[in-house]
Design a protein around this nucleic acid. Structure first.
Length: 557
RNA sequence: UGGCCUAUGGUGUAACUGGCAACACGUCUGAUUUUGGUUCAGAAGAGUCUAGGUUCGAGCCCUAGUAGGCCAACCA
């Protein structure tokens, strides 16, 4: 699919090809710059695919850079998970850096700005500054500390670094334009005092650069040619460029694109954190979460996420992508890769009355009709099997609409025989307890000489050989399509039925040896992945996604 | 209200920079099928936010509206 010829370029590719053809750059350098303060989600996956994908496409390089300038919120736990997630997606970064690697260099940059008279130490408290800052429509006023001399500023800044001041007592500001309609140009903070240990630099620093003074400069230091970020940073671009100009450093170009929004879910670190902390989900990797760790555990494949990212494209307009697109991407990938097995979610016993008590037969089953190299396996067949309760109806609709079993109806047990229902037993509660049928010896799969044709084919497992397992069925986490449109608490829209635990499922015995991470298709049901909660005698499967079901869609059932 | 950005079928992205709007998902038909899956064949669905303008000709250019988004953390 990498070899697929592209017919059109997205706006970023157009910029890149233009830069390359005009000789502005010989090759490109991008970067993925997460802040290690949370787990990555599907929105980050879009950015990862973009940055790494572009680098691959144009034979450039892509760094992984942790934007760790706020020690209060950041932690190594997140650094590790981020590395793991990027690797899982299948990307290799060229350089691994931390903004904190550049603290000394950044400090020097700040001093240069001070010497040029382009930055000053401000003693105003946050409140005081907020009062004179103005609003987008009202110009701000100058701080009374704005005109300190370079020498004075330099001394003060050194003292800030030396720890002579308390948190919030002073900041370093760029001296730009307090009347700019762009609030980010009204003398933005470059450095603030935080007497906090940093997860990498420890107690070395008590002043930390702000995003605006760290991100762009880090890009520049790494000679990033195209710095891709989301739309909300658009208003930062004038400042980004102002700093490059004043510092006379490598001119990285910032390009903004629309962040990913997905229907029926939230894609915001803050909200996801809320779900985790409020125990609405079991953790960052709850299979219902749109985090990379969540969808990984759920059973989405790296390839499916990358295909998805490719499909949705990249542009500058805000929108919301239908999860159906993501779901299609997984089905498409798993259809090719996942072995088929029999799994009966809601088992009911079917007794083949004309099959001898002790007789067992071994049948050949195809592992994956989409991939011949997946081979075949043996399936034991015996007198008693489980079929799904939904595959039998006491009083079924016309055979044109109902292909499955019912009194006197015939169906094929896949890979086995055609059977005819001869009766059933009902419990006091009205539940079907057993179904009786007779098999036709002439209809054995592969050597059918009966000439019979049946429309329905059922999955089954030999009762004697089947194993029980826990199946976790998932539905969308939220009931509302667009969570950005609501004005009350997003948690009010949580789907109370997003998790459904099934502990009665019976699976074919071959699954006994399944390992955590294995992915299979339960025929006619969906794709499932062995969860890490599994133990040797208790398998747990996560439903990744159901199979498409036209029949149910048309009102079947 | 000030600035910036965006506006194409239900959703997302295209349209070689002005030449009769394409692709994917979704939806609907039908065929095949020992998964009501897959695959295959086909259909419906927008005339490109509105109003002007430039032009032989505009989704692409200009102007003005309208709608939506973003910006007033010592967060990123």
């Amino acid at each position: 699919m990498e070899t697929e010829k592209k017919t059109s370029l997205n706006f970023i590719e157009q910029i890149i090809e233009d830069d390359l053809s005009k000789g502005k750059h010989e090759s490109i350098q991008t970067r993925f710059p997460p802040e290690p303060n949370g787990y990555l989600h599907i929105g980050h996956a879009k950015s990862i695919c973009l940055n790494f994908g572009l680098a691959e496409e144009y034979n450039g390089k892509c760094n992984l850079r942790f934007d760790d300038t706020n020690p209060e919120k950041e932690d190594v736990e997140y650094v590790d998970s981020i590395r793991k997630d990027v690797e899982w997606l299948g990307f290799k970064w060229d350089g691994e850096y931390f903004a904190s690697d550049y603290f000394e260099q950044l400090y020097t940059f700040a001093c240069q700005l001070i010497e040029k008279g382009k930055a000053y130490v401000d003693d105003l408290t946050q409140d005081q500054f907020n009062k004179i800052k103005g609003t987008p429509t009202i110009p701000g006023k100058h701080s009374l500390y704005r005109d300190r001399t370079a020498a004075e500023n330099l001394k003060l800044f050194q003292d800030m670094r030396a720890g002579k001041y308390a948190n919030g007592e002073k900041v370093l500001r760029a001296k730009i334009d307090m009347s700019s309609p762009n609030m980010h140009m009204r003398d933005p903070v470059l450095y603030r005092i935080k007497h906090v240990d940093h997860h990498r630099t420890g107690g070395e620093w008590c002043i930390y650069p702000s995003y605006d003074f760290a991100h762009g400069q880090s890009d520049s230091i790494e000679q990033v040619t195209h710095s891709l970020c989301t739309l909300e940073f658009e208003v930062h671009r004038p400042l980004y460029e102002w700093l490059i100009r004043e510092l006379e450093i490598f001119p990285t170009r910032q390009i903004e694109f629309a962040r990913l929004n997905l229907s029926y879910t939230v894609v915001s670190k803050r909200k996801l954190l809320e779900l985790v902390e409020g125990k609405y989900v079991s953790g960052w990797d709850d299979p219902r979460m749109p985090t990379i760790s969540g969808i990984r555990r759920r059973g989405f494949t790296p390839q499916s996420v990358r295909n998805f990212a490719e499909r949705i494209g990249v542009a500058r307009r805000d929108g919301i992508i239908d999860v159906a697109l993501l779901e299609h991407a997984v089905r498409d990938d798993l259809n090719k890769k996942a072995n088929r097995v029999m799994g009966i979610l809601d088992p009911v016993k079917l007794i083949i009355t004309n099959w001898p008590e002790d007789k067992e037969e071994t049948l050949k089953a195809i592992n994956n009709p989409e991939d011949e190299s997946a081979g075949t396996r043996d399936m034991p067949f015996s007198r008693e099997v489980y079929i799904d309760r939904a595959d039998f109806k006491e009083d079924p609709p016309s055979p044109r609409k109902w292909f499955r079993l019912g009194p006197d109806r015939e169906v094929r047990l896949k890979y086995a025989y055609i059977i005819k229902c001869t009766g059933f037993k009902k419990g006091d509660d009205g539940e079907i307890e057993e179904i009786y049928a007779e098999y036709d010896p002439l209809t054995k799969s592969g050597e059918d000489t009966s000439g019979k044709k049946v429309k329905g084919t059922l999955g089954w497992v030999s009762a004697k050989h089947a194993i029980n397992a826990e199946i976790r069925l998932y539905d969308r986490l939220f009931m509302t399509e667009n969570l950005n449109d609501i004005d009350d608490d997003f948690k009010n829209y949580l789907n109370p039925n997003s998790l459904n635990i099934n502990s009665r499922a019976m699976l074919e015995g071959s699954l006994k040896s399944a390992n955590v991470g294995d992915q299979v298709q339960f025929e006619r049901v969906g794709y499932f992945r062995v969860d890490e909660d599994s133990t040797t005698d208790h398998l747990v499967f996560n439903q990744t996604i159901t199979l498409r079901d036209d029949w149910q869609k048309k009102g079947g059932n």
